[in-house]
Simulated scan of single mutants.
Amino acid sequence: MTTTPDTKEFKRSPSHFADRITADGADGWPVEAGRYRLVVSRACPWANRAMIVRRLLGLEGAISLAITDPIQDERSWRFTLDPGDRDPVLGIAYLSEAYLAREPGYTGGISVPAIVDVPSGTLVTNDYQQITLDLEREWTALHRPGAPDLYPEHLRDEIDAVIEDVYRDVNNGVYMAGFATRQRAYEQVATRLFERLDALEERLSTRRYLVGDTITEADVRLFVTLVRFDAVYHGHFKCNRTKLTELPALWAYARDLFQTPGFGDTVDFDHITRHYYAVHRQINPTGIVPIGPDPRTWLTPHGRESLGGRPFGDGTPPGPPPTTETVPPLT
């Protein structure tokens, strides 16, 4: 990320490593079961998207998962949750080691999600916008039986339009508000954020999902911001005109998705709150992590079934997550 001196507005840097893993291997990285490792932080919404799509498509056996500590240090995302403080598959202590294996001397940002080539230990991609789309379109030969179509061809134009608006005003909008250092820049992006949330509230008051009658990529992308909204964005990022819980349709929609297999079972509120409040010291100098809100409200009835819809279309729900990937129950 960079900050422009004239407006002090937050700017998200484009992904530096944008190779693609494709069925035909056009970028030199062919789809291959067991070859790649997806590195994530449970705190990160962009990484959460990749985790959800991987679960829904049943790719757990095809691409393994590495989970970093939610707290970074100056050397980047670290594998201190694993025995010996090293990833057991890649053998590295920091994700930066895979970046440097790809580009020696690299001094840019170290971001998740990242996909690493296991045999070489080399980073393949950190293109968070493309990773999920390729899991949906290029990895089809390895999808589980009954995997949903999250990016149906006949709805792609509408999905793309929705996710562009959601990315600009919501996914990235909360960051632009949170890291703004001038009042006018903050007010502009915070206003756009809530105008978009109001429009989504209206859209979702009469339909269960954002596009069509099944879960799509658009829902995955909106969910990861909504699930973090009251816990961190409302207070920590000053997105406080309205809480998610005060927007009836969006709050019910978010709970509906949370209670759908593949969504809530990837969410760790402890990782989320500790990361944002402990790492962003320029916003929260004390590093104090708040005790709320109560995450058990995510399990309350949502009533969205009355709107119809088929969560997985002609497919089926994913099975339980692997035991090594389960999150603590809400208490």
Rank of each mutant, 00 (worst) to 15 (best):
D85M: 08
R168W: 12
T22L: 13
Y167Q: 11
I272K: 05
V40K: 02
Q130H: 02
D230E: 10
G313K: 10
E201G: 05
P295T: 04
E103H: 13
A33E: 14
L100V: 13
S111C: 13
G28R: 08
I21Q: 07
G212T: 04
E246Y: 06
V220L: 02
L204N: 06
P261D: 04
D230T: 12
L200C: 08
E9Y: 00
A26N: 07
L244K: 05
P301I: 08
G28T: 10
G313A: 02
Y36P: 07
A26Q: 14
I159A: 08
E60Q: 13
R296S: 15
F229P: 00
G146F: 07
V116C: 07
L307E: 03
E187K: 06
A218W: 07
F223K: 01
A50Q: 01
T297Y: 09
A33R: 14
F10K: 09
T273N: 01
L204D: 03
E158I: 06
G25M: 10
T68W: 00
R144I: 06
D149P: 09
A177G: 14
T68Y: 04
N284H: 06
I67M: 06
T300C: 00
N48I: 02
T4P: 01
A93R: 14
V189F: 06
A254I: 01
I71P: 00
P88Y: 12
Q183S: 14
A161K: 11
R310I: 06
K11S: 08
N172W: 03
V118G: 03
L222W: 11
A252R: 15
Q282G: 05
H143S: 07
